[in-house]
Simulated scan of single mutants.
Amino acid sequence: MNRVTPVTHDAIIGCILGTAVGDALGLPYEGVSSERAPRLLGPPDRYRFFLRRGMISDDTEHTCLVAGSLIEANGDVDLFARRFASRLRWWILALPAGVGKATARAGIKLWLGAKPNSAGVFSAGNGPAMRAAIFGAAFDDLPKMLQFVRSSSRLTHTDPKAEYGAIAVALAARHSRDHDSVDANLWLSDVVDTVGDDGSELTELLRRSVDSVATGESTKSFADLLGLSQGVSGYTYHTVPVAIHAWLSHPRDYRQAVTEIIQCGGDADTTAAIVGGIVGAGVGEDGIPRAWIGGIWEYPRSVAWMRSLGKTLADTLHEKRPAKPPTVNPLAVLIRNMLFLFIVLFHGFRRLAPPY
């Protein structure tokens, strides 16, 4: 049954927090093969990043950058591009760990004077997809949503494949938000209509994902069939079909959907962030395990700060007027990033030791 309602606080906050929890749960597993991860880290049933707490990475941070830019843009896609570009410049300056190559290069180009429409580099990485769910959670107007998804994608990645992957994720979050019972074929039809013949390679992969779910195949088995037995890569035509499979397999079970995608290995923080954002847009904050939300250890982008960001975005879209998004202390961000880098390095050295 369709929920014919205006944009809700639940969908946007659920999407942001769903992204954050998936990101934090998957982060310790990033780059670890699906075979080694259980022996090295154990099951992804709790946070294993730092003292049983979780921290977010670029996946959630970009979602927050997008949300803040949407608040200030008030429906103006050109203003959104300028505000997002400005945020991206300063985000790069704070030395985030694990930033993708294409995003890093785009950020450097922006500092060297490139305009938002010329900063992107030719890459089919999953950067645009990782920050796309928030658009589906936020927008009722489909053409406008697509304008913003394309603007966000092209700022860093100019390969159309990256854009098509982001569109598929945004449409999934929108479908998750608007339908109590997910209709995989209806969602796929929307994707096909939107990306057209140029996106046929992706839509064929997504069709295989839909068919696999219909037969009851696990997400891990589907990833294996795509040749991703050692882990899901950051190539968007690997990331998105497997993430969609996890969503369609458990569209209202946040815990199971996120757990299954992490168990596929590889770029686990990004895949789990994407799945978490899609499912979170449908189930809201109440559908995300409370202990997982409470276990996020972050500052200055705390859980309370992310809730405030989501509420401000929802109010802005509902009232159709710009507002001021919640801010963060740049010095606090830099200090936090130094601590984060230290913990990441610890995990890196730990992986050099057994079990292999």
Rank of each mutant, 00 (worst) to 15 (best):
Arg336Tyr: 11
Phe342Ile: 06
Phe349Ser: 06
Glu61Asn: 11
Ser249Gln: 09
Ala67Tyr: 06
Arg207Met: 12
Asp193Asn: 13
Gly277Cys: 12
Val149Tyr: 01
Ile335His: 10
Phe50Ile: 04
Leu205Arg: 15
Ala24Glu: 04
Thr8Tyr: 07
Ile16Arg: 08
Gly107Gln: 10
Thr8Leu: 06
Thr236Gly: 00
Pro96His: 10
Leu79Thr: 10
Gln263Ala: 09
Trp111His: 15
Val66Arg: 13
Gly31Leu: 09
Tyr235His: 13
Gly277Arg: 11
Met306Asn: 05
Asp23Tyr: 13
Thr158Val: 00
Leu41Trp: 14
Leu112Met: 14
Ser123Cys: 11
Val182Met: 13
Arg301Asp: 01
His318Met: 12
Tyr29Gln: 03
Gly136Gln: 03
Ala243Gln: 06
Ser34Thr: 08
Met55Cys: 14
Pro44Val: 05
Arg48Pro: 03
Leu248Trp: 10
Gly165Thr: 05
Gln263Val: 00
Ala257Val: 00
Pro96Asn: 04
Val182Cys: 10
Gly234Asp: 01
His157Ser: 04
Ser249His: 10
Leu171Ser: 00
Thr194Ser: 10
Ile16Cys: 06
Ile293Met: 07
Gly136Ile: 01
Ile335Val: 15
Lys311Leu: 08
Ser34His: 08
Gly107Val: 04
Asp190Leu: 14
Arg255Phe: 12
Asn185Phe: 00
Val279Ser: 05
Asp211Cys: 03
Tyr356Phe: 15
Gly216Asp: 06
Arg82Asn: 13
Phe139Glu: 01
Gly125Asn: 09
Pro28Glu: 14
Lys324Asn: 07
Leu225Lys: 15
Ser176Cys: 04
Asp180Ile: 02
Val275Phe: 09
Ala314Cys: 10
Leu228His: 02
Glu204Trp: 08
Leu41Ser: 09
Val210Tyr: 06
Asp45Ala: 14
Ala124Arg: 05
Thr103Ala: 11
Leu51Pro: 00
Phe135Tyr: 15
Pro43Gly: 07
Ser200His: 09
Ile293Leu: 15
Leu41Val: 04
Thr19Trp: 08
Gly276Trp: 08
Ala272Arg: 13
